[in-house]
Amino acid sequence: MRHALTAGPLLDERGRLAEAGWATSEVRGYDRHAVAASRFRIKEWDYYCVLTQDVGLALTIADNGYLGLLGVSWLDFGARAEVTENVMLPFPMGSMGLPASADSGDVTAAHKGMRISFRHTDGGRSLRIDHPGFDGGRGLSGELVLAQPARDRMVVATPFPKAPKAFYYNQKINCLPASGEIVVGGRPFAFDPTSAFGVFDWGRGVWTYDNTWYWGSASGLVNGKPFGFNIGHGFGDTSAATENMVFVDGRAHKLDEVTFHLPDGTFDGAPWSFTSNDGRFEMTFEPILDRAASIDLVVLRSIQHQVFGRFSGHVILDDGGRIEVVDLLGFAEEVRNRW
């Protein structure tokens, strides 16, 4: 279990992480003005990924100090195809106004014909996208509303070795039922909350320059109840906490270490597998498509493989109960960054 976070400010009077650990709610308060590092090094992002059995939508608003980003991905699982388009904003350094809390504050960003907004609603969140130039002029627009009942989430605060001003503060909120419509190339795609689920990735921090991380996530229904998980490593020094959790009907079950076993060769070829040091999370993963992206600007480089597919296996809950998982839609990724 390692260390559970207590309530208080995220950073101390020197601008360093006050406490490392994990939680199931936002117990530590983030304040951008308390960060000791340069504005060029502060990284803030909101990322949503919403999946149905047939299609998916991912939206990003990120302020990474010297570079901002608006991103949209449209996923077609039947065709095993995806289109991702990003718009870069030079040197935003906090001007994009990403909120200090995952539970309050709205953000809207527009640049070069792409407009994205994330807003809080009564009992949920509204995601809007308008990108007339998407995919060579096909266009992509619409709104999804994610319901957010009172449920546990994954919260982690970790430092980085030998970098006292660096920290990673992250929240992942799984199992968000989605409703609404996205229109792509004039064709409407309906999102039904009984079969469409989203995950929200809220991150704030100061990262070291060269790092590699692994992240996996899935949300859906298992045995008629909301079920999901968040797994990953590479996010700083995890001696006090990992971000591995399983969620069943709104309650979190904390896991220790989960190892990603990637196949040799292509990321979307042979199955992946996942094992845990305590035997509580054992999964295989059948890839459907690889959302691969590579940005190389010499000093800034990002090589991403976010692979979408289906998880099968079992998890062991805190009370010893066992849940079998068959073909649960989600994703797993490897990302190598110099940023």
Rank of each mutant, 00 (worst) to 15 (best):
G113T: 12
S104K: 12
G250Q: 09
P99K: 12
N170Y: 15
S276M: 00
I129S: 09
Y47E: 11
A157I: 02
M96G: 12
P99W: 06
F229E: 10
P164Y: 04
T60D: 14
A190Q: 15
P271C: 06
G216V: 05
M154C: 13
G56H: 02
D237Q: 07
Q53S: 14
D249P: 00
M245T: 07
F77H: 08
C175G: 06
V107D: 00
G180Q: 07
D103F: 01
T208M: 08
D318R: 00
L70D: 04
R41N: 04
F191C: 09
R119D: 04
S38D: 11
A157S: 15
F40R: 11
R119T: 11
F227K: 11
S195I: 06
Q171S: 10
V199H: 14
S25Q: 15
K43C: 05
E333D: 10
G269N: 01
L140Y: 05
F134I: 03
I61Q: 04
V83N: 11
A102T: 03
V315E: 01
D192C: 00
G15D: 01
D201C: 07
R119I: 00
V156E: 12
V145H: 13
A218Y: 09
R119W: 04
M245N: 14
E181M: 03
A34F: 02
V298P: 13
I61M: 01
V326Y: 08
N230G: 13
G265M: 03
N64Q: 11
V27M: 05
C175Y: 07
Y47H: 15
A293M: 14
L262P: 14
A34E: 08
H120M: 06
G321M: 09
S195N: 11
R153T: 09
L59E: 12
L144N: 07
D296H: 09
L67W: 01
V155E: 13
R187C: 07
L70F: 01
V299Q: 11
V55C: 02
F134Q: 08
W22Y: 15
I316H: 05
T108L: 00
M88R: 09
L140T: 01
A37S: 08
G205D: 06
L328P: 08
D290Q: 06
V72Q: 08
L146C: 02
A270H: 11
G309Q: 02
P161H: 13
S126D: 06
G269V: 04
Y66F: 12
A110W: 02
C175T: 14
W202R: 12
L297S: 13
S38H: 05
N337F: 09
L57P: 02
I182S: 05
S239Q: 04
H3T: 15
S219L: 01
T108C: 10
D54R: 07
F160Q: 06
D210H: 15
W207T: 10
G228T: 08
V222T: 15
I303M: 11
R16D: 07
P161Q: 09
G320M: 05
L75D: 01
N174L: 10
L329T: 10
R280G: 00
G71D: 05
S276A: 07
